[in-house]
Amino acid sequence: MATPTLIGADRPLDFEALPDKRPRHWPFSPWHLFLIPLSAAMLLPLVWSVITSLETSADAQRFPPVLLPSSLHFENYVHAWNSLPFGHFFLNSFLYAAATVAGNLLFCSLAAYAFARLRFFGSNLVFVLLLVTLMVPFQVVIIPTFLIVRKLGLIDSVGGLIVPNLCGVFGIFLLRQFFLSLPVQLEEAARIDGASRLAILFKIVLPLSAPVLATLAIIQFMWSWNDFLWPLIIITTPQHAPLQLGLSMFQGSHVTQWNLLMAGTVMSQIPMLAVFLFAQRWFIQSIAYTGIKQ
């Protein structure tokens, strides 16, 4: 995937507003006949990978498959963890995601505010230029970016992952649209109160932009955490690999050991899953927060 996007993010989904608060006490709805098999099909791959991850290597290589293992082999996770530097993978992914989230929040906020509120020389032209890059797929820039990162001496390092992704045009665009929707009088009041442009951004605009900042942070985090192609191209040393690349390396070295492979896979997905469950609530709270109207 090229650019992280979520056009729906201009109106984040409000789960509380969806009609499920007070279920009607129907004994049965035909929709269950559709939704139960669907849910089963959606969950089956994950459930099956968890089951396999707890089986012995012999049980995993059996047909018909062992659907319920007689004993649970949690040591598979320990083996998986030790067979490749999974600690590094997690750390690298965390650094990659955290640094790009921080970079995007900071640089996109500054630029978005400038494009939303400051009339400066060349701003329209530059903004159009940025929008054009939004339409170009990642594949077009991948080779030159590789050469640039190599020139910077950042090949095969986490820095090489982070630096090209510190600031995305999508973030600038998303934040600018939001900033434009804030009442300009608040900023004028702050200017009269003696606040500098920087103070206005940090003390007035950003505190009022929590929902959209959360949206940007979540999307960027998810994108960096699951990024594969860019790490695949610039990282060769396992110690410098982020999680998804590490998982792929792990796959290459354990082709037929499905129980270990599944243990590694499950392990790698847990943090993002946790963040997702947490982020669902965040969105809702953010909406409640912007509900404040003057």
């Binding site: 009442p183 009088q185 608040l186 004028e188 009041a189 702050a190 200017r191 009269i192 109160d193 003696g194 606040a195 500098s196 003390k203 007035i204 505190p207 009022l208 404040i292 109207k293 003057q294």
Partner: peptide
């Protein structure tokens, strides 16, 4: 610029900072 003029203004729709308490609104300037 406005901050170098040392004037104060009340806006038609008040433009109070919605994320600050009354106390902090008063103290901001």
């Amino acid at each position: 610029s406005p901050r170098d003029r040392d004037i104060a203004m009340v806006f038609q729709n008040y433009a109070l900072y919605p994320h600050m308490s009354v106390q902090r609104n008063l103290a901001f300037g």
